[in-house]
Computed example of a mutant assay.
Amino acid sequence: MRTIRVPLVVTALAAALTLTACDSKSGGDDAKSPASDCVVAVVVGPGNAATTAGDTGNVPVTVTNRGSNQCTFQGFPGVELTAGGSSWNAAQEKDAQPAKVTLHKGEAATFTITYVRGNGGSLSAPAKAVKITIPGAGDAKSYPWSYGDVALKTKDTPDASVGPIQVAGD
């Protein structure tokens, strides 16, 4: 009997792509940009949540090209944490160099939101949603934020950052 071995990276990528196909159950959303004609599915998390005030958490975000055209992205996504009428914009990751990422139909890219857990006090953002703008993929879309309060550096500046878009697995 012949045994076929599939590298772990291929298995993980296939699993990630399979998970993005379940948008209605995974918090994903399709967005279409009239200018670029890119249709993308966005899945937020699951992440390694910061469970205690002062801890750092990382939330991966997967962007999958659902359209028939190739899509090219470059730069940092916009990330805005929101709660009611309040909002806080995450900073771009320091010293990160965004690269041009081209995705064909079904291919995925990722970026990470890194945050420090707040203590629920006056220097905490009680985030309930995250609004994400993917460069070249249309208007911002909101997704649930289930990772708790985010610490604030100042009343308007969250202790959160966003990394550049990169090919999934990089």
Rank of each mutant, 00 (worst) to 15 (best):
T3L: 14
F111A: 06
G118P: 04
T72S: 05
F111C: 09
T62I: 12
T3S: 11
L17E: 14
E80Q: 11
A99E: 09
N48Q: 13
D149P: 06
V61F: 13
P144L: 11
S86V: 00
P98R: 10
A50S: 10
V43F: 12
G169R: 08
N119A: 05
A127P: 01
K105P: 02
Q70P: 04
V39K: 03
K153S: 06
Q97I: 06
T11M: 12
Y143G: 00
C71T: 00
E80V: 14
G27N: 07
T20R: 05
T11C: 07
F73A: 05
P144W: 10
S24P: 01
G106N: 06
S161H: 15
R117G: 07
G47P: 11
A41D: 04
T154G: 00
L81G: 02
V150P: 00
L13A: 07
K25Q: 13
D95A: 14
G120W: 06
I132F: 11
F73L: 02
A108M: 09
T82H: 06
V43Q: 09
P7D: 15
G28P: 09
S146E: 09
A125L: 05
A83D: 09
D55F: 11
T56H: 10
G75I: 10
P34S: 07
A108Q: 11
I4G: 08
P144M: 09
Q92A: 04
T11L: 14
L13W: 10
S124H: 04
T18N: 06
G163V: 03
G84R: 06
H104F: 10
D95Y: 14
T110Q: 11
T102Y: 01
A16V: 15
R66N: 00
P60V: 14
V79H: 08
A49S: 12
S142V: 03
T112E: 09
Q92N: 12
A125M: 10
G54D: 08
G54R: 07
V116Y: 02
E93I: 02
S122P: 05
L81T: 00
L17W: 15
I4H: 12
E107L: 03
A140Q: 12
P144F: 10
A41F: 02
D159T: 03
A160Y: 08
A90C: 10
F111D: 02
T72E: 02
A15T: 15
R5H: 15
T62G: 01
L152G: 01
T112N: 08
S36Y: 03
K32Q: 08
N65I: 01
G148F: 14
G45T: 08
A151N: 01
S146N: 13
I134F: 12
G84I: 07
A50M: 03
R5M: 15
A53G: 07
T18I: 08
A108P: 01
G57F: 11
N89K: 08
T133F: 15
A109K: 04
S68A: 13
D95K: 15
G84V: 06
V6I: 15
A96S: 14
A41L: 01
A109L: 02
A14K: 01
G163D: 11
V40N: 00
V43K: 11
A160I: 00
